[in-house]
Amino acid sequence: MLRDITIGQYYRADSVIHRLDARVKIVGTILYIISLFTFSSFQGYAVSVLFFGIMVTLSKVPFSYIVRGLKPILFMLVFTAALNLFWTPGTTIVEIGMLHLTWEGLYKAGFISLRLILLILGSSLMTLTTTPNQLTDGIEHLLRPLKYIHVPVHELALMMSIALRFIPILIEETDRIMKAQTARGADFESGNIARRLKNMLPILIPLFVSAVNRANDLALAMDARCYHGGDNRTKMHPLRYQGKDILAYGACVFYLVVLGIIVRI
């Protein structure tokens, strides 16, 4: 059961978006998210939705797959929409006891929900089309300027990718320890929260011990393979911008310009 958890739900497909440099996708997504907060008109949303639609079509990821990303925030979405619906002052449409449903509220709730939805969908499109490795690589490159103020960018990126590598292993290990403890009569299902948390202790301690041992082994193995920090290191798959990446940056700029013009009118 625990084995099915995947971090960074990558959807394997062969599309232009998949082949783009991770840096373009990260920068593009950030620009897109920021752009969502710069306007509040229907025309603006029309442009954003259209742009997103084109990207989804190009990415060949089924739309139903992308929508799944909304599940975790469904409650938040309904909650904010409801708050805006009933608590915005303005012309009342219906009155239910204390609650006033207003035109302005309807308008505002619609905008905010749309903004949230596009924000989540936009970033899931990025994680769906970029492997975790490409993501860490892209982040490492983008953060490179921080090296000059002595931020250990290479080490942070390496830590991120090692963490990704060990998540499934540690999940499996947790599963194994839980089964071993259950077999000896441990109970993880009943009692109140405080009790349950206390019962988790016999899982956490062996898990930590094993994680530290693994880290020790891994450090030895990295030493044995000549790892000595990020200096003088070469890359097997260096990130290099290609024609399509420049084009993609162009598309982002084009989107921003169109958005600017439409919103102004």
């Binding site: 492997t131 975790p132 490795n133 990718s161 090692i162 990704l164 590598r165 693994r214 082994d217 891994l218 193995a221 990295m222 393979r225 000549c226 790892y227 000595h228 290191r233 070469t234 890359k235 097997m236 798959h237």
Partner: peptide, 18 residues
């Protein structure tokens, strides 16, 4: 505990990269 990368070929490339 001795495989560092998330993809087989990238792990094999780790030593030469270093």
């Amino acid at each position: 505990n001795q495989i560092i990368a998330n993809i087989v070929e990238e792990d094999v490339g780790f030593g030469p990269e270093n």
